[in-house]
Nucleic acid binder design. Structure first.
Lengths: 139, 139
DNA sequence: CCCATTTTGTTGCTGAGTGCAACAGTTTGA
DNA sequence: TCAAACTGTTGCACTCAGCAACAAAATGGG
């Protein structure tokens, strides 16, 4: 194995692959982590516009168009309109989208627990805390 | 921000993006994490064959062909031959490949320290330990 | 009040990356 | 001995992301 296992970047990548597998088991096929992220961001920030979503997700605006398109095809969001700026078409969460979030989030958390069962509860909490701190998501 | 920051998978992804940026700054353009992983695996396991590398990296054999191709174009590896099985062409680390590893690894570790400077040394060590345990790379 | 500049969303193009299917050469095992 | 399995390889198709360019709309300095 060599020096590979010492690298933080490598271990993060492996961990992410593991949790992606967990995500795939928890969520119906066709839904990507990026799409769920969009839904959660819209739910937490009503009226948020595509450009802002693109900046937060760190993708191009044209990429965000396509991501929102797929969410719209699934009827999880629809493109609304702003009264103050007719350029923006802020994605709005639909009933279906809200129901999807409510249905899938508990399953995702359950699968995360399952896939990280090698860690004790306190270890898992500490791992989350350290990652949040690393990502500047301080409490 | 909402429930997103609570998800371990999301935090792992964010952390991996951060460390990927660190890697990009530490390594000359054109070298990907996958390529370095291959070099390190070959260095630690002389004679390892492409199929095994593909299994470890969890990619298709045809994908591994192309990854090794790029390492060969850079003269970091050359395709050897096995005396016991004429089918296998195990990639062999060249002088250049060895020199590259020796030159780049310290820089990578230095950049990792820089990019994770928000963590204390003990926190960083604990994060590494937890990730290694999660990835079943127990000491 | 104008008109140049900026912003927003969008589309087309391109390049990178991956898996799958198929293949020839080689080895294995019943 | 010969069918099956394995190794490396190539071609094809598909996905994904960024860049450039665009029209419509908003903004701001003269």
């Amino acid at each position: 194995m060599g020096a590979l296992g010492q690298l933080l970047g490598y271990n993060l990548r492996r961990g992410q692959l593991l949790l992606f597998e967990s995500f795939s088991e928890a969520v119906p096929a066709g839904i990507t982590p990026a799409q769920l992220t969009i839904l959660l961001l819209i739910a937490a920030n009503p009226g948020i516009k595509q450009t802002t979503l693109a900046a937060v997700l760190d993708v191009d605006r044209s990429t965000m168009v396509r991501l929102v398109d797929r969410c719209a095809e699934l009827r999880f969001v629809r493109r609304g309109s702003s009264r103050t700026d007719r350029r923006v078409a802020p994605p709005v969460l639909t009933e279906r989208g809200r129901a999807f979030i409510d249905a899938v989030m508990p399953e995702i958390l359950r699968k995360e627990l399952e896939y990280t069962s090698v860690l004790t509860p306190s270890e898992r909490a500490e791992l989350t805390r350290l990652l949040r701190k690393l990502n500047a998501l301080e409490d």
